[in-house]
Design a protein around this nucleic acid. Structure first.
Length: 611
DNA sequence: GTAGGGTTAG
């Protein structure tokens, strides 16, 4: 409301008293200015700090503030809280709280609290009124629960919630849980959860979200059982299913994901689009392309999310042409693709080496759909050029043609291409750019090291190794996991920790024997140390993938695919090894590594960039 | 009597 309109606004009842009190006299003395003041107080909308100071002076001069009832003072303080910077507002509040006759009601305290933008100032104000004997209620605490409040703040409010007996207020307690979750304190959220007398499904869901987002994915899955247990008052709902399916996606926990899906169907959530979309993603992130496609086909009302999930999943699994077919079908079905759809389509092109198609879709995205490419789209184009061997062109593209600033991922993509093509000079320039961005990681040095190793520059290799040692850059040890009967088995190179290690090593040597007969030769360029070729060969023998395959062969029935998850990229030698293994042993092996899936079958792999 | 607050698909 513009200030000029306020002169006609009615004076609040509290100020328009008919007795001849000092308030009324002062009021009569300057009726028009006072009615503006009254309107400002009544509206409680922010005013510029200068105007606030004028108002303050006016109220003091006319005695309106000094002799005013509690309501006026509270309105004035609320106005201070919205109009002034938090700390200045607090000073005004403090001053008025020392006035002997002034004590705002709980309702008025809440209005003032709502107006204070800084949570710590709000808490300080609350302490002051508490000291004066005014108690808060559930609203007071809800107002103080700002979404991004600090952990200390959350703990203090938690204590208040307990002390004032508001644990039964499920909404209040869950928003407090959310504060812990936002700050990554899963234990704090759990403690509060355990204290709640009644936990509804939302409370469970908040806890699951908290665990899943704070790298406690397995704990998130455990909650599913707990939630269905006899001591729980609530049943998992559709949101629970979505959250659990997401957790299974990130863990690659296929069996668990299917249990969640069975539950969802039994309880009538099987037709919900969000649940189905999560299921499609889960299957794709576990490498089950067929099952994902079946669910996808059985989904009648596909949204852009459904299509994008399928396209991106096919792309990550190495089925670039299928991803493009699905994209074309999407266009025919009149569903408009968005930025994320194009990220999937472009990554399909880059992962499958479809250079011309990639550029065609990149143009389509801009010209036909008017979408602005983001850094991920550019990343796909750089990847596409890099894989096609157009390295200098890619560098030129990054430095001169991109409309957004290149991030570390863009440079890493290019570095990966330098590794594939053994382009040492460019690799050095690219790592220079990463250093400039202060974003270099151990993996980047390893890529550069690989590039030198690929062209046999062993002196450079040892130089980089020395540099890494001096700078204290730690490489992540390669680790491969296999899920068997719900237990995750973890392997690192030369592992001797597994209880079945004897069988595993015997099995691996038998596999080697069979593969050598079929013509397998170790690819020593993957080993980074400057060992003689015999030394390199033996270093490659017990890579974590190979140990995991030997174990999986022991425990996985013949008709089921062997599923592995690797924390880094699969090395060239393990890639060759697995290809041959899939042919000789007639097994499907699905490996999820840091960037994508590899489907090995009959001596071939779905990806095309290992040579 | 007023006022406030929770989870969810690519």
């Amino acid at each position: 409301m513009p200030i000029s309109c306020l002169a006609l606004a009615p004076v609040p009842r509290a100020m328009a008293s008919s007795s001849s009190s000092p308030l009324t006299r002062a009021h009569r003395a300057s009726t028009s200015t006072s009615s503006v003041a009254a309107a400002l107080l009544a509206s409680a909308s922010p005013i510029p700090p200068r105007r606030f100071i004028q108002l303050h002076a006016h109220l003091l001069r006319t005695g309106l503030l000094i002799f005013s009832p509690v309501t006026t003072t509270s309105a004035f303080l609320s106005l201070a809280a919205v109009s002034l910077p938090s700390h200045r507002a607090l000073a005004v509040l403090d001053h008025h709280l020392t006035t002997p006759h002034y004590l705002p009601s709980t309702f008025q305290c809440n209005s003032i609290l709502r107006a204070l933008s800084d949570p710590s100032d709000a808490l300080r104000f609350l302490c002051r009124v508490r000291a004066l004997g005014r108690r808060g209620n559930a609203f007071t605490l809800a107002i103080l629960l700002k979404p991004r409040c600090s952990l200390a703040h959350a703990r203090q409010l938690h204590a208040n919630v307990v002390a004032e007996g508001h644990l039964r207020d499920a909404l209040l307690a869950t928003s407090l849980m959310r504060c812990y979750a936002n700050r990554g304190d899963g234990d704090g959220a759990r403690k509060l959860f355990d204290e709640m007398p009644v936990r509804d499904a939302v409370a469970w869901n908040v806890l699951i979200t908290c665990y899943a987002r704070n790298r406690r994915t397995k704990d998130a899955l455990k909650l599913f059982e707990e939630m269905r247990g006899k001591d729980s008052e609530s049943e998992p709902d559709d949101v629970t299913c979505i959250l659990l399916l997401q957790a299974c996606s990130s863990l690659g926990a296929l069996d668990f994901g299917e249990q969640v899906w069975a539950y969802a169907e039994e309880h009538g959530y099987g037709g919900e689009l969000k649940v189905r979309n999560s299921l499609i993603t889960m299957y794709l992130r576990c490498g089950c392309v067929d099952k994902a496609y079946r669910v996808f086909s059985g989904t009648p009302q596909k949204s852009v999310v459904t299509w994008t999930a399928m396209i991106s999943g096919l792309a990550a699994n190495g089925f670039g042409n299928d991803a493009i077919s699905v994209f074309e079908e999407m266009i025919r079905s009149d569903v408009a693709p968005d930025e994320q759809t194009f990220t999937g389509v472009l990554s399909a092109c880059s992962h499958s080496g479809l250079v011309d198609e990639g550029f065609r879709f990149f143009d389509m995205m801009r010209c036909e759909y008017g979408l602005k490419p983001n850094v991920r789209h550019y990343g796909c184009i750089v990847d596409l050029m890099g894989r096609a061997g157009l390295l200098d062109e890619a560098y030129e593209f990054v430095t001169n043609e991109m409309k957004v600033a290149p991030d570390a991922t863009i440079w890493r993509t290019l570095l990966g291409a330098c590794r594939i093509h053994g382009h040492v000079d460019l690799g050095e320039r690219v790592i220079g750019n990463l250093i400039e961005l202060k974003a270099q990681q151990a993996g980047d040095y390893v890529l550069l090291l690989n590039t030198y190793a690929a062209v046999g520059e062993w002196s450079k290799v040892s130089e980089i190794r020395k540099l890494m040692q001096e700078e204290g850059i730690q490489t992540t040890p390669g680790c491969t996991t296999v899920e068997h009967n719900g237990t995750v088995h973890e392997f690192i190179a030369d592992d001797d920790a597994h209880p079945r290690k004897v069988e595993i090593y015997e099995n691996l040597s038998e596999i080697y024997k069979q593969l050598r007969i079929a013509g397998y030769v170790p690819n020593v360029s993957s080993e980074l140390h400057d060992l003689d070729s015999e030394g390199k060969e033996s270093a490659l023998t017990y890579h974590s993938e190979k140990l995991a395959i030997a174990f999986a062969l022991l425990v996985t029935p013949q008709h089921r695919p062997i599923r592995l998850a690797k924390n880094l990229r699969v090395c060239v030698d393990c890639h060759n090894f697995t290809k041959m293994f899939s042919a000789i042993y007639r097994r499907i092996v699905i490996v999820r590594d840091r960037t994508r899936f590899h489907h090995f079958q009959g001596g071939k792999c779905s990806c095309n960039d290992y040579w």
